[in-house]
């Protein structure tokens, strides 16, 4: 039987799963992705993790431990540096050790991803993992190349090149209709880590709730990297966390070019990087926009009802303001 490797559907899975799947599959290793986050998954995580740690890491524990029972290995890379000169959150460095420290830990595969280890750092990490399953180095290198290709394709597919303002004519046509309160499309940027905003359980289904209302949602991953980097130059100081740089750059881009009507920043609690970036983004949205920005802080006690009320109020008056301002 082919060995199975579990991919916890949490944290950087949301960024890199395309690569991970492609890599293992080419090696003939079956991957098992954990189920969507649920109350059960969260409870496993809450029990096993330190109560002081951020919600996404607690959720990660849940996924990793749940998978441990279903697979031969759990894949938890130690991601230190993915871009020269910038770091990831320190939590990612410690992740494999944290999971190893639980009672009855699963078998973990944890290559170190650190671009300071030379030009071929990532390929070398791939080779290290591949050798566990095959002696055929050429095959591993091929798997690595396929993985990088899949990742680039995945990222490219997410990018929306030309997001522009909705023209007034379109707004007018959208509110016509006989349907009473038919409302126009707003475009809202959701800022935050992909593992928060794209996990429906953690984000209380934020994106879907907005989409159900006919609102167009954009996330940092939809913004081309070139624009992110350019906009991030406006930051008050150089950011040494690169995922957070992306969130900041995307938000700055939305504000500066006025391509969104509002921004919702989803912040995990407690998260040092998020709370720092949040302050920068809030300040920028006020000063350079103004683009209304609502921050939502999520922890394991976040309640749905309060969120829905806030969302409604935000969206209803955003709609009202937008139409009034444009004389519609």
């Amino acid at each position: 039987m082919a060995p199975t490797v579990g991919l916890p559907r949490a944290l950087l899975y949301y960024k890199y799963h395309a690569a991970w799947d492609a890599f293992f599959n080419h090696l003939g290793v079956e991957t098992v992705t954990s189920e969507n986050t649920s109350k059960k998954v969260l409870n496993i995580g809450l029990k096993a993790s330190d109560s002081e740690i951020c919600l996404p890491v607690k959720v990660f524990y849940g996924h990793a431990l749940d998978l441990g029972e279903k697979c031969d290995y759990v894949f938890i890379p130690r991601i230190v540096q993915v871009e020269k000169g910038s770091f990831t959150c320190p939590k990612f460095l410690g992740l494999p050790d944290m999971i190893r420290a639980v009672d009855n830990p699963p078998e973990i595969i944890s290559p170190t991803i650190d671009v300071r280890n030379g030009r071929h750092a990532i390929r070398d990490a791939a080779l290290e993992v591949g050798r566990m399953f095959t002696d055929d180095e050429a095959k591993i290198v091929k798997a690595y190349k396929l993985a990088m290709k899949a990742l680039r394709k995945h990222e490219k597919d997410l990018v929306k090149e030309n997001i522009e303002k909705t023209p007034i004519e379109k707004l007018k046509s959208l509110i016509g209709g006989n349907e009473g309160n038919k409302e126009p499309v707003l475009r809202i940027g959701i800022a935050g880590h992909a593992y928060n905003i794209e996990d429906p359980y953690i984000s209380l289904n934020l994106i879907q709730r907005l989409k159900d209302r006919g609102i167009e949602v954009v996330t940092p991953e939809n913004v081309p990297m070139k624009k992110i980097k350019k906009a991030a130059k406006d930051a008050p100081k150089d950011l040494f966390w690169n995922y957070e740089r992306d969130i900041l750059g995307a938000s700055y881009h939305w504000v500066k070019n006025k391509v969104v009507d509002g921004i919702i920043y989803v912040v995990a609690f407690p998260c040092g990087p998020d709370s720092t970036i949040q302050v920068f983004v809030e300040g920028y949205a006020k000063k350079e926009g103004p683009v209304p920005l609502m921050s939502i802080v999520i922890d394991e006690h976040s309640a749905e009802a309060g969120l829905v009320t806030r969302l409604e109020a935000f969206v209803d008056l955003l709609t009202e303001s937008k139409l009034s301002a444009q004389g519609v």
Partner: peptide, 14 residues
Amino acid sequence: VIVLQDGIPIDFAM
């Protein structure tokens, strides 16, 4: 309490 930015409610407590 309702907190507004540019006329848009961004936070509240009840």
